[in-house]
């Protein structure tokens, strides 16, 4: 039997330091442990379970900078009961948090290679820690490109990050929106169309993809069209999740538990399941 008997189902109290609005339905919570001590270390792509008193909990990716000492950061889209309640939390409020959980992005393994980040909507949140890590170790990677698609310019997250990243000469940033007014000077259309704009060495490129499942499927098609190997494409999957540690069974996806075998999967691990309905 395992020696580790810490109760993985028990949340720890975290105090909210800041609740910042990103867009009309997305907000970012900064939290720190109520009890003394630093926030737990996390790897890019991992997630926490955020509990709000009496309402329940939700799986939320960690979106802060793992290379810096900073509060634990979660960017959340208002969608259900729990996230609606989280949106209302004010600084000083206390949440329960379990985690971090899950398999992270392979940022260490990608060293020496070109790296493409493909994000759709809120999918940029779990990719941001990966970007921070890549940039903090910039000389260890080849070319780096971010392809980010959102519904409208008003739905774009992390504008100050995007502006800063776009100002760099060692980073390609392409942003596309589905619809925009006439004052939008950027691309319009699906994010997958941006991939062709990038320059990378397909034989030596790792792609990290996060967004709605259909967007990930088409992104993979496009990446493969550009001759990136299946084993070098990584996706972050989402399913209903209760426990986050493989006990509750809800997040099963074929033979995988999204919570503990993922959420990040190598494309060839889930390839046979992705196109199927109702897996």
């Amino acid at each position: 039997m395992s020696e580790s008997l810490a109760n993985p189902l028990l949340p720890a109290p975290y105090r909210v330091l800041r609740n910042q609005r990103n867009t009309h339905d997305v907000f970012t919570l900064d939290v720190e442990p109520v009890k003394k001590g630093n926030s737990p270390l996390f790897s890019p792509g991992q997630f926490n379970m955020l509990y709000i008193f009496g309402k329940g909990d939700a799986a939320i990716s960690i979106s802060g900078d793992p290379t810096k000492e900073q509060p634990l950061r979660h960017t959340i889209r208002r969608a259900g009961v729990v996230t609606q309640a989280l949106e209302q939390v004010k600084p000083g409020g206390v949440l329960g948090i379990r985690g971090p959980f899950g398999v992270p992005w392979p940022v260490k393994e990608a060293e020496g290679q070109d790296v493409l980040l493909v994000a759709g909507g809120i999918g940029l949140a779990p990719l941001r820690p990966a970007m921070y890590t890549l940039l903090a170790n910039r000389d260890k990677y080849g070319r780096i490109a971010l392809f980010y698609g959102a519904r409208t310019p008003e739905d774009l997250l992390y504008l100050s990050d995007l502006e800063q990243w776009r100002g760099r000469f060692d980073l390609q940033v392409c942003v596309s929106v589905d619809t925009a007014k006439r004052n939008w000077m950027g691309d319009v259309g699906v994010v997958t169309k941006l991939i062709a704009k990038a320059s990378f060495d397909p034989s030596n490129t790792v792609a990290l993809v996060c967004g709605p499942e259909i967007m990930m499927r088409f992104s993979v098609q496009e990446l493969k069209k550009n001759e990136i190997k299946s084993g070098n494409i990584f996706l972050s999957m989402e399913r209903n999740m209760k426990c986050a540690v493989g006990f509750c069974g809800h997040c099963q996806y074929g033979p995988h538990f999204i919570c503990k075998d993922g959420p990040v999967f190598r494309y060839d691990q889930v390839q046979s399941l992705l196109g199927k309905r109702e897996v």
Partner: peptide
């Protein structure tokens, strides 16, 4: 195996 055999133990 489900509850005791992995990284986490169900209390």
């Amino acid at each position: 195996k489900v509850f005791l055999g992995g990284e986490h133990v169900d209390p």
